[in-house]
Design a protein around this nucleic acid. Structure first.
Lengths: 241, 241
DNA sequence: CATAATCCTGTTGTCCTACAACCCCTCAAT
DNA sequence: ATTGAGGGGTTGTAGGACAACAGGATTATG
């Protein structure tokens, strides 16, 4: 059944999910309401039950609906905001950026410590590669930031905690975007002192390689503080508590 | 107490999705890589292809992987996702919930430390009110969790960092929803020992009131670890680094 | 009569098979 | 060399079957 001439549009499950979601937004289905049975939905949409199941599965993963076996699927009494997002524009503000950087630092520092204790050899190898790639990039101005982020993500991977990885990736991305925007606007390309930066990363790598959690913690703390300083910010990271 | 609090846990698609995601996080599957065929995945996980399809469907909705008919499914070249979202259902999985709790702990502990040093008197007063409200609720079963969250949010406010506050609120909400859902499903209401919980909170409050960052840090660490224990989990929080 | 045990029915969860749509490669024909 | 038709493999969709489960109706039991 080809309806969409504009390219092969979204597949069936996506479309069905959209339609169900639309019914919820339109309040034809209110929180707490029970959805029609999968078979009924399949019939009414003219698709197979399989497609309906995939659609509902997505909505369920988003916390929009929840289903209980043997009973039915219900529109969730949506209590909480299932997503976290930061206003990109607000980050131009000096104090806001500092706050974001602080949050990132908290996670990165602990992540370094955890990675030192939990990393696998393969993960360490990946970290080493990221470091090597940083050394490789002569032109630090553009690609350097990406290589830097890659290094930090590799550390996050080393924690073995998928959520820490996601959070750090998310925050790093915010920081990266903000930095890029700022440089574009101010025009002045801040030249990092390559040697210093790489040395800091190397120190972190060494500590993680040696499985020395305390040293990894300190090395990362120093790096974060210096990175902030290079951007012109004084970061108030707590010392070892 | 039941061995597995998150009882007849996560449905198959969630678990499969988690495992695939874990492979991506572990970098056994790198961006651009092609996933095994659905049939191969189904065989290796010992489930039907249908289940694998639902799992992949979710990851696809999250932009983590993308698949082309007739070719295969590929790990998306991570274009930074501007939003942070966790699979609500996957959190029923024991290890996933533990990972989330660990992430939350990292932030909460540091937040307590920061709040001890930065709080204003007004913020301390708000924290005291939250604590009083916790003491007020005799029936800890239902409203207690909300009062608890309010207390933690008040601490986050005390850091003076809006992003830390948002992150903690977000994570707390995830934890709360997960616990609620679990209780609903398993039926067994876990009764917290009210006195102990309040005592832990009081200790945190005292430390913050005294502007003693180290003590606040420790008190929160103890609280988080005990809270996890009450839910039947052993949390591996690093000691003072 | 009250209460507990049992059956019954409907729904979701999972499995299985089959086929359509599609991509990519090969290979023969022009 | 270009073109075009297959062929194998993969995802997308369909449909049927059964297990797992919840809840109400029914029957047995005190």
């Amino acid at each position: 059944m080809k309806i969409d001439l504009l390219g092969r549009g979204p597949l069936l499950p996506s479309r069905i999910a959209s339609q169900i979601l639309q019914q919820i937004v339109d309040e034809r289905l209110k929180p707490g309401d029970r959805l029609p049975t999968e078979q009924a939905l399949a019939d009414s949409f003219g698709v197979s039950r399989n497609v309906v199941r995939e659609a509902i599965s997505r909505l369920r993963a988003d916390g929009i609906i929840q289903s209980r076996q043997g009973v039915g699927a219900f529109v969730a009494r949506s209590t909480g905001i299932p997503t976290l997002r930061f206003d990109a524009e607000a980050l131009s503000d000096r104090s806001a950026f500092l706050a974001l950087f602080e949050l990132r630092g908290i996670l990165e520092i602990r992540a370094a410590s955890l990675a030192a204790r939990r990393r696998t050899d393969a993960q360490l190898a990946a970290l080493g590669e990221a470091l090597a790639r940083m050394r490789g990039t002569e032109k630090w101005v553009a690609g350097g930031v990406d290589a830097d982020l890659e290094f930090h993500k590799a550390i996050a991977v080393g924690t073995g905690n998928a959520y820490i990885k996601m959070a750090i990736s998310f925050l790093s991305e915010q920081v990266r975007v903000t930095i890029m925007e700022t440089r574009e606007r101010s025009g002045a390309a801040v030249v990092d002192i390559v040697e210093v930066t790489i040395a800091e990363h190397a120190a972190i790598y060494e500590a993680i390689a040696a499985r020395d959690a305390a040293r990894a913690h300190d090395a990362m703390a120093i790096h974060i503080r210096n990175a902030a300083a290079r951007l012109g910010y004084e970061l108030d990271l707590p010392d070892r508590p």
